[in-house]
Amino acid sequence: MDSDKGEELLMVRATYDVPYHWSAGQYVGKFFEELRDNGRIYANLCPKCGRGLIPPRPWCARCNVRMGEWVELNGRGTVLVFSVAQQSFWDSGRGEMTPVPAAGAIIQLDGAPVLLRHALQETDPEKLRMGMRVEAVLKPREQRIGTLNDILHFRTIEDEGHG
C-alpha cells in the first residue's frame, strides 16, 4: 500500500446533469415579470424601518413586519464599492467558464434606500471609482426571460445633464 511503488491511484469519474426549475415566488416573481414585460425595476419598502428591498420580498427580516409600498426606480445609481475579477472558473449553473475580466459593484440605487449587487459594463479598473454614477442597461425585450440578468449590466453615466 505504498504509493511510492508506482501503483495506480484509481479515480472513479462521474458528471452530474441535474436540471432544476426554481419557483421565484409571489414577490420575486412579480418583480421579474415587471422587469421582463415592461422593463420596470421595483423595490418595496418596509413600513417600519423604511429600507427598501430589491427584488421585493414579503417580510422585513429585521423588523418582522410585512413589507409595504412598491416603488418604481429609474435604474440609476451610485457605485459604493467595486471589484474586477481576473480569475475565471467553471460556472456549474450555466455550463461555461465565467468571463473575465468581470466587474461587479454594490450600487446604491436612486429612489429608495436600497442596494443592488450587479455587473458593471466598464471592466478597466482605472476607469472605475467609488461614487461614480451608473445606469441599468436592460437586454432587448425578446431576450428577457424574467431573471435578474434581464438587466445586462450597469453602464457609466458620462454626463448626467438635465434635458
Binding site: D91, R117, N149
Partner: peptide
C-alpha cells in the same frame, strides 16, 4: 473544480445569477 461545487451553495434565483462580485 472546487469553485463550481462551491457556487451551488447560494440562492439560485438571486445571488448566484448575477455572479455579483
Amino acid at each position: 473544480s472546487s469553485q463550481s461545487a462551491l457556487m451551488t451553495i447560494s440562492d439560485p434565483i438571486y445571488d448566484r445569477m448575477t455572479r455579483s462580485g
